[in-house]
């Protein structure tokens, strides 16, 4: 009987070795280990054995069963893996086909620039304030030291609605409104972004509507060197650490002394090229120390308080920073233009 068992084992192992698919393996398992399998058949003859032989043969039989079972399981794993592998191979896809598109929009370039400037000044303790686009003559001009008949009013031909109301020509009225709100009682820092309007014919460098950001800092002991320091920080953060600034005296009715700020030309680094018209410098913004008349009209005592103000055009900054060469692009909303600035 021992020989018989060993023969079965040998035969079974050979068969398992030979088998190449799961169905056949299953059949093989039944053939040997099933109720009617050959091993079972042999074991049925155990009863004819002597009590001494029975445990010996029993153990051998168990070993044979285990060996065959292991072999089948092992083969089963191999075949299963092979089958899975085959299935996965069949499932292969073209990974170079594009992914399912996701609809993503984005901000307008001017918004991007404005928010960058807002965040920069928020970091230096400035509040963001806003004001109406339809302004009174008083806030747009008079409170800013531009009385009626002031020649500087010619500098900014305006869209009047009535004799007293106009589309604001700059965001400076928000300065006057803020000072009056604080009633000369405390120092403050603020910037005010917004839309402004001027009587200009739209062309590559003019737009009847554009944006402005003004900043104002009023406190005791504000110095002109503070203005220079703040503008320097702004210029470096906005245009790059290697940019230098230059201040030139200028004139605005609402500041005295007044300042025009240039930054060194990025293209030639100040040597002079066609971009900076050979000067090495590019004009960025106007600024100055708040005129005492403006402080006074805002309720601040110019003997006690001083301040600085600055104003810049996000369009101009965007044009310089991103090389946009026509201001009308900002208002045409050509999707091919808008998309260019949606990247992070």
């Amino acid at each position: 009987m021992k020989e018989e068992l060993q023969a079965i084992q040998q035969e079974a192992l050979a068969k398992v070795e030979e088998v190449n698919d799961l169905k056949e393996l299953q059949a093989t398992k039944v053939n040997y280990l099933g109720k009617k399998g050959s091993l079972t058949q042999v074991l049925r003859g155990m009863g004819k054995l002597s009590p001494e032989e029975r445990p010996v043969i029993g153990e051998i039989a168990n070993q044979v069963r285990e060996t065959i079972t292991n072999a089948i399981e092992e083969k089963n794993t191999i075949l299963e893996n092979a089958a899975l592998e085959e299935k996965l191979q069949a499932e292969a896809i073209d990974v170079t086909l594009p992914g399912r598109p996701v609809k993503v929009g984005g901000p307008h370039l001017l918004t991007k620039v404005i928010e960058e400037i807002e965040d920069l000044f928020i970091g230096m303790g400035y509040e963001v304030r806003e004001g109406p686009e339809v302004e009174t003559d008083y806030f747009n001009f008079e409170a800013l030291n531009l009385p009626k008949d002031h020649p500087a009013r010619d500098m900014q031909d305006s869209f009047y609605l009535t004799n007293e109301l106009l589309l604001r020509t700059h965001t400076s009225p928000v300065q006057a409104r803020t000072m009056q709100e604080f009633k000369g009682e405390k120092g403050f820092k603020m910037i005010c972004p917004g839309k402004v309007y001027r009587r200009d014919t739209d062309d590559a460098t003019h737009s009847h509507q554009f944006t402005q950001i003004e900043g104002l800092y009023v406190d005791k002991d504000v110095k002109m060197s503070d203005l220079k320091g703040v503008l320097n920080v702004f210029a470096k953060k906005m245009f790059g650490e290697d940019r230098r600034i230059r201040l030139r005296p200028s004139f605005f009715p609402f500041t005295e002394p007044s300042v025009e700020m240039d930054i060194s030309c990025k293209v030639c680094d100040g040597k002079g090229c066609s971009v900076c018209k050979g000067t090495g410098w590019i004009e960025i913004l106007g600024a100055g120390m708040v005129h005492p008349n403006v402080l006074e009209m805002g309720g601040y005592d110019p003997k006690e308080y001083s301040g600085f103000a600055f104003g810049m055009g996000p369009e101009r900054i965007a044009m310089l920073k991103y090389g946009v060469n026509d201001i009308r692009q900002f208002y045409l909303n050509d999707s091919r233009f808008l998309k260019q600035f949606h990247q992070a």
């Binding site: 807002e118 120092g187 800092y217 504000v222």
Partner: peptide, 30 residues
């Protein structure tokens, strides 16, 4: 202030130092 500008511009805006405001801090923000 007009004279202040005259003095400053002949002295040279280039010669003004760079400083940052030392006044009471404000929180700022949106």
């Amino acid at each position: 202030e007009d004279m202040l500008e005259e003095v400053a511009r002949i002295y040279g805006y280039d010669n003004l130092p760079y400083t940052l405001p030392t006044g009471a801090g404000t929180a700022g923000g949106l």
